[in-house]
Lab assay of single mutants.
Amino acid sequence: IINNLKLIREKKKISQSELAALLEVSRQTINGIEKNKYNPSLQLALKIAYYLNTPLEDIFQW
């Protein structure tokens, strides 16, 4: 999986903590996703895309 979450999140000036709060997950979860240590569920990936107002395929590429 190619993961552009960190790049997109930083472009939008959103911290890991802010995104985690919006998604109701821990900051460690966001960190793990960004470091490719954790693959989000489809539901979480869709929520990330929604809150970042970015197409899912721009954030994650399988």
Rank of each mutant, 00 (worst) to 15 (best):
I1K: 09
I1Q: 09
I1C: 15
I1R: 13
I2T: 14
N3R: 03
N3P: 03
N4W: 05
L5P: 01
L5W: 00
L5K: 01
I8P: 01
I8K: 03
R9E: 02
R9T: 03
E10M: 12
E10H: 08
E10I: 12
K11R: 14
K11Y: 09
K11D: 09
K11F: 08
K12I: 08
K12P: 01
K13R: 13
K13Q: 13
K13H: 12
I14L: 12
I14A: 03
I14Y: 07
S15H: 05
S15V: 04
Q16Y: 04
Q16V: 12
S17W: 11
S17D: 14
S17R: 10
E18D: 11
E18I: 06
L19G: 00
A20N: 01
A20M: 03
A20G: 07
A21T: 13
A21V: 09
A21H: 12
A21I: 12
L22E: 07
L22M: 14
L23H: 00
L23V: 15
E24P: 06
E24W: 07
E24F: 10
V25A: 03
V25M: 06
S26R: 08
R27G: 08
R27I: 15
Q28E: 15
Q28T: 12
Q28Y: 09
Q28N: 11
Q28F: 08
Q28K: 13
T29A: 10
T29Y: 15
T29Q: 08
N31W: 08
N31H: 13
N31I: 14
G32A: 15
G32H: 14
I33G: 01
I33R: 01
E34I: 03
E34P: 01
K35S: 14
K35N: 15
K35F: 06
N36Q: 11
N36F: 10
K37F: 13
K37A: 10
Y38M: 13
Y38G: 06
Y38Q: 09
N39C: 15
N39P: 14
N39M: 14
N39A: 15
P40T: 05
S41G: 09
S41A: 05
S41M: 05
L42S: 05
L42V: 08
Q43M: 12
Q43D: 14
Q43V: 13
L44G: 00
L44A: 03
L44V: 06
L44K: 02
L44E: 04
A45W: 09
A45F: 04
A45L: 05
L46G: 05
L46R: 10
L46W: 07
K47Y: 04
K47L: 08
I48S: 01
I48K: 00
I48A: 04
I48N: 00
I48C: 04
I48P: 00
I48W: 03
A49F: 02
A49D: 01
A49Q: 03
A49M: 02
Y51I: 15
Y51K: 06
Y51A: 14
Y51Q: 07
L52M: 08
L52A: 01
N53F: 05
N53L: 05
N53M: 08
N53H: 08
T54I: 07
T54P: 00
P55H: 05
P55A: 07
E57L: 08
E57Q: 10
E57K: 11
D58H: 10
I59P: 01
I59K: 00
F60I: 02
W62V: 12
W62E: 08
